[in-house]
Design a protein around this nucleic acid. Structure first.
Length: 470
RNA sequence: CGGGCUGUGGCGCAGUUUGGUCAGCGCACCUGCUUUGGGAGCAGGGGGUCGCCGGUUCAAAUCCGGCCAGCCCGACCA
């Protein structure tokens, strides 16, 4: 009745472990078209929580939500040469509609810079129209060669922000602000995933950008996952789409732009940053279910006590669920909630009722304790705070133990077998970067020696953080 | 697109070398009873034109030809 293996252990086969979690925690599965995914209710609940938290921060940063079309005239893409070069291999193109050949094929958006900027061009006439700060939640399609659920799918869900400013400095500051106040804050405070911030090298830059900033996280197998990006687009799109305005002195000027996004890939990051051999570990601030009240077995008063307690927990602002499926064995249900990473289980059985207590079990760490029924809501609330911090601290300690300093490409190769390597960018350079690429090792980001975000990619003393990535 | 491999109930697989008695196993699912404090036990049961098309043969999951799909490793990427 005990100890049966639920998942392939991470150490044995990490990709297999990931697949097992997707299935057993009922997160997502493949769609019928290669590279597409069906996101199941629990997986989607995680995404909805992410959306809510990110959306709130985006609005606090002053951007408004809008929605632009899924279909983009093919001609729009080719207006920005780097952009079209970067994306054309992975475009899905519609050539027929209504039973006949289309005069001009339309592409399914791989990202919306082109169509959004076509409208920015109409909306921006005066310096009084700036800054223009727009965000949209959407699905996009990129025909990926090697899809993996959540991490790299042909269709994925994301938010993309697009802004226009009067000066380069203002645009840069806003892109950096989004990186820090929206993305980094969300990832560290809510997802409990520590991230490294920095600049992309020219080789890794977004097609059409003059500067790409990013957030990189380490997964439990030591590989890197790019969790989000924020780009300075300069004036290339402004030029191509003629986004110009009259400034206060009556001169015609071009805007400076940014774009930035995070996607459903973060669900994959959440799984791989915190998950263990028992399943998912969801940090409390994200968790769709923060506490599940489990009826141990069907006995006098158990179901009533569970529902009463769940009501009190909900009233205390805790996202709560009751599991009174006593027809299913207790062990199985416990395992299920563990697989789904619910932060706290509140277990109530006849023994607990007798003693006027409930058993609290914490997913991260596995601690258990008995708490008087009336004290449960307060105790759960305080435990949740501690759990959130603990998950973040554990992830940070884990990551830091797998980052090594290197001074030669050979040392970088060695260190990236198990984690990240830091090497002076002046030492590595674009030549060293190209060399490492042969072994699938890439520069994840350039940052200052103290880990902070540079003001420009040309600063002396920048450090290249290298790793294998998803 | 280059290199390696696989297609058999929902999932994971055995069977293919040596054609027949092979359509099977584990998990999952359904019913009943006993269970329930870490994936329960027993009994009974449902579900598969063996990727598709064609060929050889008395007989094809098995042999032959063609096609299709998927997986893994590389170039691309949120």
């Amino acid at each position: 009745m005990a100890g049966k293996r639920v998942l392939t252990p991470q150490d044995e086969d990490f990709p297999r472990w990931y697949q097992d979690i997707l299935n057993k925690a009922e997160l997502a599965e493949n769609g019928p078209v290669r590279g597409t995914m069906v996101i199941r209710p629990y997986g989607f609940a995680l995404w909805e929580r992410m959306q809510a938290e990110v959306d709130q921060r985006i609005k606090a940063a002053g951007a408004d939500n809008a929605y632009f079309p899924l279909f983009i005239p093919e001609g729009y893409l080719s207006r920005e040469s780097d952009h079209v070069e970067g994306f054309s291999p992975e475009l899905a193109v519609v050539t027929q509609g209504g039973g006949r050949e289309l005069a001009e094929p339309v592409v399914v958006r791989p990202t919306s810079e082109t169509i959004i900027n076509a409208y920015f061009s109409k909306w921006v006439q005066s310096h009084r129209d700036l800054p223009l700060l727009i965000n949209q939640w959407a699905n996009v399609v990129r025909w990926e060669m090697r899809p993996r659920i959540f991490l790299r799918t042909t269709e994925f869900l994301w938010q993309e922000g697009h802004t226009a400013h009067t000066t380069r400095q203002e645009a840069r500051d806003y892109a950096a602000r989004i990186l820090r106040e929206v993305y980094r804050d969300f990832m560290e405070a809510v997802l409990a995933i520590p991230v490294l911030v920095g600049y992309k090298t020219e080789a890794e830059r977004f097609p059409g950008a003059i500067n790409s900033m990013c957030l990189e996280a380490m997964m439990r197998d030591g590989k890197a996952l790019q969790m989000g990006t924020s780009h300075e687009l300069g004036q290339s799109f402004a030029t191509m789409f003629d986004i110009s305005y009259l400034d206060a002195d009556g001169n015609q000027s071009l805007v400076w732009q940014t774009s930035w996004g995070v996607s459903s890939r973060m669900v994959g990051g959440l799984i791989m940053a915190h998950g263990d051999d028992r399943g998912l570990v969801v940090p409390p601030r994200l968790a769709p279910v923060q506490a599940v009240v489990v009826a141990v077995r069907d006995a006098e008063g158990v179901a009533d006590a569970c529902h009463r307690l769940a009501g009190e927990l909900a009233a205390a602002g805790i996202r709560t669920k009751v599991d009174d499926r006593t027809g299913t064995g207790f062990g199985r249900r416990t395992t299920e909630w563990e697989l789904k990473g619910v932060p706290i289980r509140v277990e109530i059985g006849p023994r607990d009722i007798e003693q006027g207590k409930a058993a609290l079990a914490v997913r991260a760490g596995g601690d258990t304790e008995a708490v008087g029924l009336s004290e449960v809501p307060a105790r759960v609330a305080s435990l949740l705070d501690g759990i959130q911090q603990r998950i973040f601290d554990d992830a940070t300690a884990w990551r830091d133990s797998r980052i090594a300093d290197a001074s030669t490409p050979a040392e970088v190769r060695e260190a990236t077998a198990t984690g990240f390597a830091r090497i002076p960018w002046a030492e590595l350079g674009p030549e060293g970067e190209a060399d490492l690429a042969a072994d699938a090792v890439t520069v994840r980001c350039l940052q200052r020696p103290d880990g902070s975000l540079p003001q420009s990619g040309d600063e002396a003393d920048l450090v290249a953080v290298c790793g294998r990535s998803y």
